[in-house]
Amino acid sequence: MDIFLQQIINGLTLGSVYAIVALGYTMVYGIIQLINFAHGELVMLGAMVAFSVIGALAGTSLPPVLIVLAGVLAAVPACMLVGFAMERIAYRPLRNAPRLAPLITAIGISIILQHVALLVWSRSPLAFPQIIPLVRYYIGGAIITGVQIAIILTSVLMMAALTLLVYRTKLGIAMRATSQNPQVAGLMGIDINRVISFTFIVGAGLAAVAGVMVGTYYGIAHYSMGSLLGMKAFSAAVLGGIGNLAGAMLGGILLGIVEALGAGYIGDLTNNVFGSNYQDVFAFIVLIAVLVFRPSGLLGERVGDRA
């Protein structure tokens, strides 16, 4: 039982990271029906910037929590700037282009960001300074570390803040209006371009936070780390119903738990014919199954005719 609980904790932590990244995908998609495939690279950039700041401050006598916070404070604006520039340069001119065009620019942007990061931060995997002391808490035989608690809490907080933003502020109303019908929103006096820019900026900020989390949790950052994470988070967003905030959160956490349980139990259940080597397969099979029975994701309501 303690093993099962431990797997749930593992899955929750991993899922929280997926969820925050998935939120970035889903917000952008919700507003302009665009899959920002370069979103994963923003996570990588966040981790890299934080690495530099944390590395520079690690020798000082500041408390570790402050150092990590400084890393976040540096990473968030940096990623926001890149996110903003990305939308202006690569996506805005293509708003009325064929659907696949922005997808290709996203791939181009991904390649560029990765290699710029390679030039700046070298190609070696960067080891985050191990400044946060390992604190273990025991819950019914399972272990949860301080960092894991911080990750889960942060992601819940971010989710709550984002919900407030979208449903309780004027800007949120503008965002929802734009997502419903950009033309009409424009007629109502909403500056659509500003709203879309803002959405990208918020998404990039979330990605930066996720980057710092991943970096401090696993203790490693690498210029190519964004693509796999981005792919998983994108699956999470689709699983929950892309364009839906709660869906992204649910999808992320579900995907995390499915991966953990899949790796943990399928081997024993199938007499080791299938094992943890098929971990990613379980995640995708669950995804495919959900989509086949609910083609627009778990919480997605819009089954519009989008080709």
């Binding site: 792919m231 994108f234 689709v238 099979i285 083609p295 994701g297 989008r306």
Partner: peptide
């Protein structure tokens, strides 16, 4: 039954599988 982006992710998953 799937369309557009959902189809994209399923085919992506298929490739990985």
């Amino acid at each position: 039954k799937l369309r557009g982006d959902y189809l994209a992710i399923v085919t992506l998953g298929f490739g990985e599988i």
